[in-house]
């Protein structure tokens, strides 16, 4: 792919041909404010915040503007500033001012853009403020949909379409009544939504936010324990609990994507029904025991049943190292090849 040179605010940068001005800026470490753009998705050009002036005459949106050699871009032209500022002001004037208690405080894209554009309280006072009061959709067990915070960037719609090909959500209604909704405006849990949560991950504000998740204190890179695809996960840890799971963007298998089980199916780890001690059968009942008691019983029986009287069934659920040792134990200690596992189920 060949390179072109473009100028952004007087700075000459190299850009790959076929990219957009916004992409080129980002790849060169330059920030152009934007809301509806997402690197995984086709540019939509709806928020109009990434507006720039091209070659000193034309207003264009940088997320859809292809780079051309010799192109001169201004992000600080007065007309650009005015459009951008008014656009962001309009969004803020229609957005709840509950930042401190908001899930996305400090990670909110609208906050970031408003700050960059430099919106002051007096700017907003000029406007007629209104925040839509559509009841929250709390039907999904893993995430909520708060229309009052929705900026209609459409990232969720495009994620569900372009990446997941599920198309559970789309725009409904017209004009200011527009909202993200499901077929027949049913609660999201009754739609064809598969709860993969990919839209929740990409929502730039808190219109889609996970339920009951705590911010993790640290993240641990691991692999999902469900199917054989082996998606990379980041386990969020707080104290002795797993409190969140995120897709691992560096993993070549899933590149950050997860399914409903992988993303939300972690509550079994700290489930109260987890076995916590060995159990041994006494008078027909399984009762709690120490490791020594359990191992004593095992040693007594296994020693008697070496060879063809013994079999082990390893597991497709445990690690390579676990499996290796079990077959080694079966073969080397118990003296039999009676080792198999549930590969066939």
């Amino acid at each position: 792919m060949s390179e072109v040179t473009i100028t952004i605010d007087g700075l000459e940068i190299k850009a790959r041909e076929g990219t957009t001005v916004l992409q080129a800026a980002q790849e060169n470490g330059l920030y152009i404010p934007n809301l509806c753009n997402h690197p995984d998705l086709d540019p939509a050009g709806l928020c109009r915040v990434c507006v720039v002036k091209m070659d000193d005459w034309k207003i264009a949106i940088s997320c859809k503007l292809p780079v051309k050699d010799g192109m001169v871009i201004s992000t600080e032209d007065p007309e650009v500033q005015q459009i951008r500022k008014n656009t962001v002001e309009l969004l803020v004037a229609n957005h709840p001012m509950t930042c401190l208690t908001c899930e996305r405080d400090s990670t909110c894209e609208l906050q970031k853009v408003a700050h960059y554009v430099g919106i002051k309280p007096d700017d907003i006072k000029r406007y007629r403020r209104s925040v839509r009061s559509i009841p929250m959709d709390t039907s999904n067990p893993f995430f909520d949909m708060d229309h009052s915070k929705c900026i209609l960037c459409g990232i969720c719609v495009r994620t569900c379409d372009e990446l997941q090909n599920i198309n559970a959500i789309n725009y409904a209604q017209r004009g200011v009544a527009s909202l993200i909704s499901t077929l027949g405006n049913k609660p999201i849990a009754e739609s064809r939504c598969e709860s993969c949560g990919e839209c929740v991950v990409r929502c730039p504000v808190a219109a889609l936010s996970p339920k009951n998740t705590m911010e993790p204190m640290r993240q641990v890179k691991s692999i999902c324990t469900y199917c054989g695809v082996g998606c990379g996960v980041m386990l969020g840890v707080r104290g002795d609990q797993i409190v969140s799971v995120e897709g691992d963007y560096d993993n070549p298998v899933n590149q950050g994507s997860l399914c409903v089980k992988g993303r939300y199916g972690y509550k079994f780890i700290n489930h109260p029904e987890r076995l916590k001690t060995p159990l041994v059968r006494k008078n027909g009942e399984l009762v709690e025991a120490t490791w020594d008691e359990a191992l004593d019983q095992i040693e007594a029986k296994f020693s008697k049943h070496k060879g063809e009287k013994f079999a082990a069934l390893a597991s497709a659920r445990i690690t390579n190292e676990d499996n290796y040792l079990i077959q080694k134990f079966t073969r080397a200690v118990m003296g039999t090849n009676n080792i198999d596992h549930c590969a066939r189920l």
Binding site: R48, V49, N94, R174, V176
Partner: peptide, 18 residues
Amino acid sequence: TEEESCGQCVPCRLGTKQ
């Protein structure tokens, strides 16, 4: 125009309303 705006872009959706 406010009623007939398709609602996809911010300036038209919220600007006409304002």
